[in-house]
Write a protein that binds this DNA or RNA. Sequence first.
RNA 1: GGGCGCAUAGCUCAGUUGGUCAGAGCAUCCGGCUUACAACCGGAAGGUCACAGGUUCGAGCCCUGUUGCGCCCACCA
Length: 857
Amino acid sequence: MTNRSRSFRVPDKPSLDGIEAKWVDVWDESGVYRFDRTKSRDEIFSIDTPPPTVSGSLHIGHAFSYTHTDLVARYQRMRGKSVFYPMGWDDNGLPTERRVQNYYGVRCDPSIPYDPDFSPPAKPDPKRQVPVSRRNFIELCERLTAEDEKVFEGVWRRMGLSVDWTHTYATIDDGSRAAAQRAFLRNLARGEAYMAEAPTLWDVTFRTAVAQAELEDRERTGAYHKVAFHRPDGTPVHIETTRPELIPACVALVAHPDDERYQDLFGGTVTSPVFGVEVPVKSHWLAEPDKGSGIAMICTFGDTTDVTWWRELQLETRPIVGWDGRIISDPPPGIGSEAAREAYARLAGATVHTARERMVEMLRESGDLVGEPTPTTRPVKFYEKGDKPLEVVTTRQWYIRNGGRDADVRDRLLARGRELQWHPDHMRSRYEHWVEGLNGDWLISRQRFFGVPFPVWYPLDGDGNPRYDEPIVPDEAALPVDPSSEAPAGYTEEQRGEPGGFTGDPDIMDTWATSSLSPQIAGGWERDEDLFSRVFPMDLRPQGQDIIRTWLFSTVVRADFENGCLPWRTAAISGWILDPDRKKMSKSKGNVVTPIDLLERYSSDAIRYWAASGRLGTDTALDEGQMKVGRRLSIKILNATKFALSVAGEDAADRPEAVTEPLDRSMLAALAEVVEDATAAFEAYDHTRALERAERFFWEFCDDYLELVKARAYEEGTAESASARAALLQALSVIQRLFAPFLPFTAEEVWSWWREGSVHAASWPQAADVRAAAVDGDPAVLEAASAVLRAVRKSKSEAKLSMRAEVERVAVRGKHVARARVAEGDIRAAGRAAALDFEESDAEELSVEVTLPPAAE
RNA sequence: GGGCGCAUAGCUCAGUUGGUCAGAGCAUCCGGCUUACAACCGGAAGGUCACAGGUUCGAGCCCUGUUGCGCCCACCA
């Protein structure tokens, strides 16, 4: 910096009002957050931004965690990195489907042909949803999500996210679909993806398969029913079950191999009540002697334990629950007798719930229900978005290997978890426990409509049956494809569904199968290899702790298979937002707070301040008090800057060499420590600490340093005055840059009053530079001077005097009076002391004696 | 049943390798229009650091156990 005089553009009445709109526009026009793709990998910091679900509404939790990411982005940008900070929109999947159905009053019927002229009903009637083709449905999804995205973008900009808005993607756009299909085809070619017909957790409402990661347990009431099976000699064997309706699906009984009570039964058979089906009695270590009667019935399939037993004991299959959650009409194998068929007919077509009631009636009639059912509550598995218990249904599905069945894959993925840097570190254990606890591969197919279709067709044999083991795949160059509306190479559309022709795979991929590729999608994998080589693997994955098992894990899986590396170096995990009653905020609880109202009441920077005060991985309460504090800090920065600039004056030397006074150098020395701490904190992803250091320094700077030096600075033409003025400018510049990541609007506003360009393009302050400016400055000098000033203020306050009341005499004693003495003139002026004496003593602590003038009457 | 995390002033939280570490802000109370800021400023009062042991010259800090809260996982008949 030169010593030329500058012009200050300080408003008369600084205010936060309207600064968001003002700077959002300026930033957009100047492109200050634009990613510079000419930089090399080591000059780039790349972020795998979480794509928010646009069909959901924004809530304050988004503002919280996205601010954390923005803090890092802004810090790295000021450190000189070209920051790759894209934004994705997750518009793929069930939430969008539901919203589109309600919004437009339509429902998807894949059997209907595409109508290019379709327009949705003017007045949606939720009771009479208009059936539309899959392609029409998807077009509506795209139309609505485009509108939702605009709303989201507006809020993000208003929040001050320094996203490069020229780099956006949507999880349903062509690029994402092509990437998801390409990755899948490569998984398929390498044997990492496969199709299997197997018992699958099934949501009967959405009529789709569900993956392990999407399960949750809910407490449900039920009842134990004590039911008699019969030995060949007619004597009963009592089992207890909460699902008597599955008795026709029973394929065996099972007890623990060591259970004395059932030794004579193992290897033999019993017959089921009502149906009289003969089933074997088996032993298995999973059966628990102290549960119920110690012997359980195995059905196909009541729960996942049944699946385990069925597989390991190689039992028969007697499915009775259909895709719609009702008892299927035809009885399963084994139900042969006339009486059994009649009994089954009473259940056929009923819901599981109704079937249970009817089964209990029949058990009562046959005398096989012992006593009355005993009420109980037990955890039942649900799809996290569903509202009926999951059933287990045998279906044909696509899977991707994830270590759930291969020890070597699991070990490799565990090693990836250890390779990744976690903030906070203990989040790593969630990953490890999840991977260690996997009990099957990743089920990626969903029987839904709005999503990425599997890029696969199947040839039909002469009878029109699909040959699933000979899938037809497209050329990668043709991606994305929609097998439901495009014919595979070598076929024509007329051959669809015809014997000897083909059929398209009807399913779509789970939304995580696409979002697990977010680093590849955003980074230009196979689309823009130059970009990809500069940003991948990415530096940072920020995300919530709840989706470690889904998004984080699946992204690691895909990158490991496709790229042979971690998708990013570091994962930063945000905590929950709790409402003021410390309950987790979630839509289902109805305690969600939208950010717009808060943004308007407190300003964006105030919300960011609150968000920045929450540490990574730590749950944080929604605290308007903190927002008030943030607002106050912002206003203080405006006012203090205005004051400091007016005191310094446009002719002040903006040169470190002009800082000559011990107090001024002391202040800069203290500031150098703050810069050092804040920098170290940011490097360790500890933004809270960086903020706390900057903030504490700033308040002391205002309360003490500004008060101490203002009189001296006001002098004209002295070296001492020039020193204060130069120090003020040096400090302002550093302080404003320290706050820039946290309070981007406020920092930009005050920076613009006296500097050219954006503070967000300025360089992060270097502790070494500040220390060099401080020369021999000793932080203890400012501390000592402040201590004396505080003592004076305390005396005045206790005497109920105004702060500008004159003081007769101030006497300072202690071993280190010299520290205060070098600021003698400043202390006297700030304290309005007529006399100021220093006396050296042995006391380590500085003591201050204040003599006030006799009370004026 | 297993795991992870948390427990410090009325509230929200700092306390980095054990040695002025008992702190900040809010709220409360007292005082002050002080020419940057009254949407402001100054000051005060507030805590057996969940509990019980242990290690140590010395423990919010390390170890063990207990209790309470939150979350995750689990094969839940």
